[in-house]
Design a protein around this nucleic acid. Structure first.
Length: 434
RNA sequence: GGUGGGGUUCCCGAGUGGCCAAAGGGAUCAGACUGUAAAUCUGACGCGCAAGCUUCGGUGGUUCGAAUCCACCCCCCACCA
């Protein structure tokens, strides 16, 4: 890590990563003057973080690289309550033991992005259950609640739709959420001299609540910075695919699927995403954009996919993802050796094992739907009818539906047991038939 | 507690006795075109290879036949208290 980098905030702004901040220009000077301690919270709402968490998560790393000390706060307490900010509906509460399990998972994930052994600005992971756990209801109401005005709270934009809107209300539990997050900031200020909170732009209300509380309880002058929510040019939600959320946990979203997700980024988004998510310099990104403008196949998506996959899954994860991608999308399935096929399987190409003896009676629609290549037999049927299904590179028609035995006849296999099934342009599935 | 309005397939939203597996839009999937992009066009879109099977908050009922009519129940919303 280099010394204090005075251009940090300017860099963030140039990347479009600053939505709001306190004191406007004052924060830039504040960060230049000395190394500061900052935090960002992550609530355990699932057993893994997803790519929607990346912007703030990577921001912690950017700050650390610039010489500041990051605290990753995992919300063992706040995760039990549920943040109502800009949510349309009341959340379902999760049980304490489930949340505790998720806290452990998130701690591990978060830890991969920041350095815990780099001297003065080594990172810290905290859990707000440490201070909320021992607190009694009376202490909370007297010591914390007294600092908040309900009049102000109901005026906040983040809960407005829950209060105004017909069809949904807000429970006292969720309404109280911002008090918890506010105390987090005050507490981290007291414990670690933490004077800056980062968050997504939906967190602004919670952050300002924390700034007020830190001042009222401890007389601290602390700051807030929010980053924009990631949006896509076509208006659809970022971070979702047909198969759901893109997780950071390789067991939930394989490095291959992760790589493919980024590779499929729209042109209209790709350079923005490079600025948002990667550590490539703005000059490098501008050069990529310029090169793409010259024509030829765009390289922005490739750079993005490579950078992100390596960042999240490491060099090995990236290489595995690229091995699969190269094998499947080069159109040269025939060149694959048994070792190659076995490697693809290890690399995370979806794979299912079937008994040869069962195949003859089953329609292909059922086989492919069962292994997850399509969500229903209807989809398989549609694809078969359009000659959009290939087994080891050979197109299969609708008339073969009841002829699984022939389709998967042993001579058609690679190394006797391997079949690579492709449905449509981008869905691949390995079948091992014994 | 009273009065009124609602609960339809992933979402929004038509449908008020048969022509309804249910209009239309969105989302999603596939095809064409491309660059594993976007836009556009085409097809699919409850489940099932098919015969057929199961849906319209729930339970009963009326009817040859119900998402549509009746009864009761559950839930939501608005206004009143």
């Amino acid at each position: 890590m280099t010394g204090l980098n005075g251009d940090l905030l300017a860099d963030l702004e140039s990347r479009g990563l600053v939505a709001q901040m306190t004191g406007e220009n004052g924060l830039a000077d504040y960060l230049k003057e000395a190394p500061r301690t900052l935090y960002c919270g992550f609530d355990p709402t699932a057993d893994s973080l997803h790519i929607g968490h990346l912007v703030p998560l990577l921001a912690l790393r950017r700050f650390q690289q610039a010489g500041h000390k990051p605290i990753a706060l995992v919300g063992g307490a706040t995760g039990l309550i549920g943040d109502p900010s800009f949510k349309a509906q009341e959340r379902q509460l999760n049980t304490p033991d489930v949340v505790a399990g998720w806290v452990d998972r998130l701690k591990g994930q978060v830890s991969r992005f920041i350095d815990f052994d780099c001297g003065e600005n080594s990172a810290v992971v905290a859990n707000n259950l440490d201070w909320f756990g021992p607190m009694t209801a009376l202490e909370f109401l007297r010591d914390i609640g007294k600092h908040f005005s309900v009049n102000n709270m109901i005026a906040k934009e983040s809960v407005k739709q829950r209060i105004d809107r017909e069809g949904s209300g807000i429970s006292f539990t969720e309404f109280s959420y911002s008090l918890l997050q506010a105390l987090d900031f005050a507490e981290l200020y007291k414990r670690h001299d933490c004077t800056l909170q980062l968050g997504g732009s939906d967190q602004w209300g919670n952050i300002t609540a924390g700034i007020d509380l830190a001042r009222r309880m401890h007389g601290g002058a602390v700051h807030g910075l929010t980053m924009p929510l990631v949006t896509k040019a076509d208006g659809t939600k970022f971070g979702k695919t047909e198969s759901g959320t893109v997780w950071l946990d390789p067991a939930k979203t394989s490095p291959y699927a992760f790589y493919q997700f980024w590779l499929r980024t729209a042109d209209a988004d790709v350079y923005k995403f490079l600025r948002y998510f990667t550590f490539l310099s703005l000059e490098e990104i501008a050069a990529i954009e310029e090169a793409d403008r010259q024509g030829g196949r765009p390289q922005g998506q490739r750079h993005l996919a490579e950078q992100m996959t390596e960042l999240i899954h490491g060099r090995d994860g990236l290489e595995a993802a690229q091995r699969i991608t190269d094998a499947l999308f080069s159109g040269e399935l025939g060149d694959l050796s048994e070792q190659d096929l076995e490697q693809l399987r290890l690399d995370g190409l979806p794979c299912a094992e079937l008994q040869r003896s069962q195949l003859a009676e089953l329609p292909l629609t059922q086989i492919f739907a069962d292994v997850g290549l399509a969500s229903s037999g209807k989809q398989v049927k549609d694809a078969l009818g359009r000659n959009a299904v290939w087994v080891n590179g050979v197109a299969i028609g609708a008339d073969a539906n009841m002829k699984a035995g022939e389709v998967f006849a042993e001579p058609n296999a690679r190394a006797g047991i391997y079949y690579i099934v492709r449905l449509g342009k981008k869905s691949y599935q390995m079948l091992v038939v014994r």
